[in-house]
Computed example of a mutant assay.
Amino acid sequence: MNMSEVEMRHIAEMVAALDKAAGKKPARASGELNRQQICAALGVSESTIRRLEQAGLPYTPVGARSKRYDLEECKNWLKEHNQCPSGMIKTEESTSALRRAGKEFTESCRKVQLRVMPSA
């Protein structure tokens, strides 16, 4: 899932506004996001972020259990390490091959249905 900078900034602002309304402290700097904010900005789940942390995703520890993520650093790390949020890198070829196979299956089902259905 590719998101533009404007969309990511908008999501981070919305999350910050929700945090503020809930009485939570905002991130210290515009680039520092908590786990929920980085998930929203990258469009991935928390378990994916945990998996990426184990693979080396950069973060700054804050306190005993909290972490802060710099959006630009994380995006650069993802680009350098070819990490896809789902864990697999999808190629255009494999996606189009799956679509083609799905289309062929749908067409064969329609043909079978036409043969089975009595004409009125």
Rank of each mutant, 00 (worst) to 15 (best):
E72K: 14
A21L: 15
C84H: 11
N82P: 11
E80P: 04
R65V: 00
G102I: 01
E72Q: 11
A22C: 07
M88N: 02
E92M: 07
M88W: 06
A64F: 08
L114Q: 07
T91L: 00
I49E: 08
A22W: 09
R35Q: 13
E32Y: 06
E53T: 12
K103R: 13
R50P: 00
G31M: 04
S45Q: 04
L98N: 11
W77T: 05
R9A: 05
S86D: 11
L18W: 10
W77I: 04
N34R: 01
S94T: 08
A40K: 07
R68F: 13
M88L: 09
E92C: 01
P85H: 02
K25N: 08
Y59K: 08
G102C: 03
S4F: 10
L57T: 08
A12T: 11
K24D: 05
N82D: 07
S45K: 00
P61C: 08
L42A: 02
V116N: 13
S4C: 12
R51I: 06
K67P: 05
A27V: 04
L42D: 01
G56T: 03
T95H: 08
L114T: 09
H81L: 05
S86L: 05
V116L: 15
Y59S: 07
P26A: 01
S86A: 09
T95E: 14
L52P: 00
R28D: 06
P118G: 00
E80V: 02
M1I: 08
E32N: 05
G43F: 06
S66I: 03
Y59C: 09
C74R: 09
G63N: 08
L52T: 08
E13A: 12
S30Q: 14
A101D: 10
P85G: 04
A64K: 12
A101K: 15
R65T: 00
A55V: 06
K24S: 06
T95G: 00
A21C: 09
A97Y: 14
R65C: 00
E5T: 13
S66V: 03
K90Y: 15
V15K: 13
A55W: 05
A120H: 13
A29Y: 13
K67G: 02
S45R: 03
E32A: 11
R100Y: 12
E13V: 08
A27D: 03
E53V: 12
C74A: 05
P58T: 14
K111D: 01
P58C: 14
A41V: 09
E32V: 04
A29S: 10
L78W: 14
Q83N: 05
E5V: 11
L42Y: 04
L33E: 05
P118W: 05
L57S: 07
K67T: 08
